[in-house]
Computed example of a mutant assay.
Amino acid sequence: MLSTTLQSLVRDGLATRRVESTVPPAVHYGLTELGYMPQSAVRSGPPTRRTSWSPKC
């Protein structure tokens, strides 16, 4: 499950993946500039049902 999520983040441009050729192999993940953006700046389209009916604080 974790590897699938990480692959999706890399595919979507939200994370980077770096592999070191050591024994054992080391893999490092990091956020891209897009990954550091607030969710509201990344989200596009109409609001979800949850945000459209939730009360405002």
Rank of each mutant, 00 (worst) to 15 (best):
Q39R: 14
T5V: 15
V19I: 14
Q7P: 00
R43F: 02
E33P: 02
P46K: 15
T32C: 02
R11K: 14
P38R: 10
G30C: 04
A41R: 09
A26H: 10
H28Q: 13
L9W: 05
R11N: 13
G35L: 07
G45R: 04
R49H: 03
T5D: 07
S52M: 12
V27R: 01
A26G: 01
P38Q: 07
R18P: 01
S52P: 02
T51N: 05
P46Y: 03
P25A: 14
P24F: 08
H28C: 06
A26Y: 03
P46D: 08
V10T: 13
S54C: 07
G45K: 04
P46R: 13
M1P: 11
T51I: 09
E20C: 07
R18H: 14
C57M: 11
A41F: 00
R49V: 10
P47R: 09
R49S: 08
R50T: 09
T4Y: 07
V42D: 00
L31R: 12
P55V: 04
E33V: 06
T51M: 06
S44M: 04
P55L: 07
R17N: 04
P24N: 07
T32A: 05
G13Q: 05
W53N: 10
S44G: 13
L14N: 05
P46A: 14
Y36P: 00
S54M: 12
Y29P: 04
A41M: 05
P55F: 00
R50M: 05
P55N: 03
R18D: 13
E20N: 13
W53T: 15
Y29L: 08
T4P: 02
P38G: 04
G45D: 01
R18C: 06
S8I: 08
V19S: 10
S40Y: 07
P38T: 01
Y29G: 03
S8R: 15
P25Q: 12
R43W: 01
E20D: 14
P38K: 08
S54I: 08
S44C: 08
E33F: 01
L6V: 02
L14E: 06
G45T: 05
L34C: 03
V19W: 01
R11L: 08
L34Y: 02
V19N: 03
M37K: 12
S21R: 14
T16D: 12
S8P: 00
T22C: 06
M1F: 12
Q7K: 15
T51P: 00
R18M: 10
A15T: 05
S44T: 14
G30T: 10
Y36A: 11
V42S: 02
H28T: 15
V42R: 15
V27K: 05
T22V: 13
R18L: 12
Q7Y: 01
H28V: 15
R50D: 09
T51D: 13
L31C: 05
R18Q: 15
Y29I: 08
R50Q: 12
P38N: 07
L6S: 03
P47L: 11
P55A: 10
S54T: 11
P55K: 05
T16A: 09
Y36G: 13
S3K: 15
Y29R: 05
S54V: 03
A26L: 11
P38L: 04
V42I: 15
T5F: 12
H28Y: 14
S3Q: 13
W53S: 14
P38M: 01
